[in-house]
Design a protein around this nucleic acid. Structure first.
Length: 238
DNA sequence: GCGACAG
DNA sequence: ATCTTGTCGC
């Protein structure tokens, strides 16, 4: 894995970079047999000004935990709508580097291409890591949808439209519960994204991947096992 | 200019 | 994201 760019950019620079990177996003399925799916998320521990990113690797389709890791660092920049990846991606990548096996697919807490410049954090991470990603957000950033056409049963969904284009889907992952906002990140189509999100949903609103990562990112008792040399260790698959 | 706005 | 207990509904 080679660094695409630096992260400490001004808002203006970051937006210009997003416009460049957005052109490289691939929305066709470049995905082989899926035997593992990872979920990533981040929590802020205000008391120590620390960001705690978490990654959980699950087997697929069993969805049993294979690996769990966290990575902490001082909170970088503030939250700016549309620039979330510049705040969260660096720590998520830190956690990702602690994996011993490479995931076949990654589920990200946030938007994929359902973004003003078509490059939410899921797409950005997909480009950086070169792995298929799906954006799995709990709320809307941009776009609109037909609320009445969305069924109440788990599995129903309607397209998410933005500027006359389908950029994602509003998906009911659990009956009678607020839907999730799904969009492809990179190296995957919308149809396939919806399929995997539903296949990973186990009776909760959040897919098991995101749910486990969310839980771990908030865990204050978790002690990450020592990795000799730590951060920049080359691994078998990088 | 005004409102909207992932986490 | 985070602050926070009980509570209404499937």
């Amino acid at each position: 894995m080679q660094d695409l760019h630096r992260w400490n950019l001004s808002a203006t620079e970051a937006i210009a970079l997003q416009r460049e990177l957005a052109q490289r996003i691939i929305l066709e399925d470049h995905i082989g047999e899926v035997r593992s799916v990872a979920g990533v998320d981040m929590a802020i521990h205000e008391e120590h000004d620390m960001a705690q990113a978490a990654i959980v690797l699950l087997s697929y389709p069993e969805l049993e935990i294979i690996e769990r890791h966290i990575y902490e660092e001082p909170i970088p920049m503030p939250y700016v709508p549309g620039l979330l990846s510049f705040r969260e991606a660096p720590s998520v990548i830190g956690a990702f580097k602690r994996l011993r096996q490479k995931p076949d697919l990654i589920m990200v807490d946030g938007q994929g291409i359902a973004h003003p410049r078509r490059i939410g954090i899921a797409s950005h991470l997909g480009l950086w890591l070169g792995i298929p990603t799906i954006g799995c957000a709990k709320s809307l950033l941009v776009g609109h949808y037909d609320q009445d056409a969305l069924g109440e049963e788990a599995g129903s969904w309607v397209p998410l439209i933005y500027k006359q284009e389908t950029i994602g889907a509003v998906v009911r992952t659990r009956t009678h519960v607020k839907p999730m906002f799904i969009s492809p990140g990179h190296l995957i189509s919308l149809e396939t994204s919806i399929r995997y999100v539903l296949a990973c949903s186990k009776g909760y609103r959040l897919p098991e991947t995101t749910r486990q990562a969310d839980k771990l990112s908030k865990d204050k008792t978790w002690i990450e096992p020592e990795t000799p040399g730590d951060t920049e260790q080359p691994t078998l698959w990088s």
